[in-house]
Simulated assay, not measured.
Amino acid sequence: MNKINSVCVYCASSTKIDPVYFDAAHELGSLLGKQHIRLVNGAGNMGLMAAVADAVLAEGGEVTGVIPHFMVEQGWHHTGLTELIEVENMHQRKQKMADLSDAVIALPGGCGTLEELLEVITWKQLGLYLNPIVILNIKGYYDHLLEMLQKSVEENFMRAQHSTIWHVAHTPQEAIELVYNTPLWDVSIRKFAAI
């Protein structure tokens, strides 16, 4: 079982989405808070990002938000977090979030969430991030992405071994179990990198 003190959660800031996604975000946050797992996220004050953070805090848990200065200047940051880390740009934000986390869980989201998820998958493929990555596939949201990743393997753009970089959960509880029980990435797998 992995020692998990903090989990980075990627997710949407959009508010015009199916309530089922908010339910999943709230449940995930509650589970993290109850298990004293620190949430690391992008510090947004809307959408699923805020919902996860608020649920963690409601359970007495801790949240570290990482956000670029320009977003703080726009007032897009959550003002009630345990810790707010301001960085210069989006690249530093992603690196800091990864550095602070023992695992990643991706809830549904738009381009920003997809970009974060695919970047951390790439980092893991290269041995730069060794911790568990879990795709929380609520309501089949990630089905097409998972099909695309599988097609990448079938067409030899990725090696078959790379399909073990991520794991798929369908409930927040399953996602938590996966971050605890997924073996850490073997850095020697880098020899299989097809990039």
Rank of each mutant, 00 (worst) to 15 (best):
N41C: 09
G42E: 01
G42N: 06
A43M: 12
A43T: 10
A43S: 15
N45G: 13
M46D: 10
M46Q: 14
G47H: 00
M49R: 02
M49E: 04
A50C: 13
A51P: 15
V52R: 01
V52C: 01
A53P: 07
A55R: 08
A55G: 09
A58H: 12
A58Y: 05
G61V: 03
G61Q: 03
G61H: 02
E62K: 15
V63A: 07
V66A: 08
I67N: 12
P68D: 06
H69T: 14
H69W: 14
F70S: 15
F70T: 14
F70W: 08
E73S: 11
G75N: 11
W76R: 15
H78M: 11
H78D: 11
G80V: 10
G80F: 04
G80A: 13
T82L: 08
T82C: 08
E83Y: 06
L84V: 01
L84Q: 05
E86W: 04
E88T: 12
E88I: 08
M90D: 00
M90T: 03
M90R: 05
H91C: 09
H91K: 14
R93Q: 13
R93F: 02
R93Y: 03
Q95K: 13
Q95E: 09
K96L: 10
M97I: 04
M97G: 04
M97D: 02
A98L: 13
D99A: 15
D99C: 13
D99K: 14
D99W: 10
L100W: 06
L100H: 09
L100A: 13
